[in-house]
Design a protein around this nucleic acid. Sequence first.
DNA 1: CCGATCACCGTAAAAATTACGGGTACAACC
DNA 2: GGTTGTACCCGTAATTTTTACGGTGATCGG
Lengths: 129, 129
Amino acid sequence: MGSPITTVYSRIKRLEDSGVIRGYKPVLDAARLGRPTTAFILASITYRTPGVEETLDQRLIAQEVARFPEVQEVHIITGDWDLLIKVKGRDVADIGRFVVDKLRTVRGIEKTLTCMVFDTAKETLDLPL
Amino acid sequence: MGSPITTVYSRIKRLEDSGVIRGYKPVLDAARLGRPTTAFILASITYRTPGVEETLDQRLIAQEVARFPEVQEVHIITGDWDLLIKVKGRDVADIGRFVVDKLRTVRGIEKTLTCMVFDTAKETLDLPL
DNA sequence: CCGATCACCGTAAAAATTACGGGTACAACC
DNA sequence: GGTTGTACCCGTAATTTTTACGGTGATCGG
């Protein structure tokens, strides 16, 4: 059978104290919260602040984008684009409003390419081990 | 001050019973678990099973990719590529091994484009409200 | 006005988690 | 070999969290 219950608890406590487990969060149902639609948005960036190092600037813009509550992820990436942004909204029109009215008004956002999600096979922050 | 404790509990219970809260998960520290490196991989797909409807096929391939434990997200998307995959690994070489040894051996995966993440400003499954 | 429904909120019971301490395994060191 | 230190296991008992179960008031439709 399994280990004694107090052993299990002390192992969990060890993971919490060591920082492997940072905390706990509810797993939410996006559809029931009115956001069944997912999109990924690629964005490029201009450097509006001469004299400031560029990566710092990108990080600040990324942080700005991250402040929108409908944004779940913001990554600075390699390749043809600078930023990869994941958003959840009510429908395509809602995603459109986010891109046009919010994202494109952020200073430094130059150009965007929106990529809608048809279907999601997996979406988690789980890690092996 | 806040609401009475039993009121808070009954509100949470309502969210659980109604399905808005599906459950609870630990928030893990990817770096401490040996996976500090994130990559997004775009993949295109071939249709190896004539006579089978294509979207079904794509869904099956997506499910196959989703079985790898280092994969956190698999989405079927609009645009030039079919699949968007998010992976966490030890380093770039580890991501490379995943793409070459695992992802490209999945039947139906045709072509891939790997995009490394330099920095992540936000990464969550939280939702507004 | 009435009945039904729903959320609020208290007490008391039940269940979960923690605190604490003894025991064991293992490695480093003298 | 013996000793020391560390880390984990695991039990009892205390503590805290969570649930069960009403009673109350607000709201809504008829």
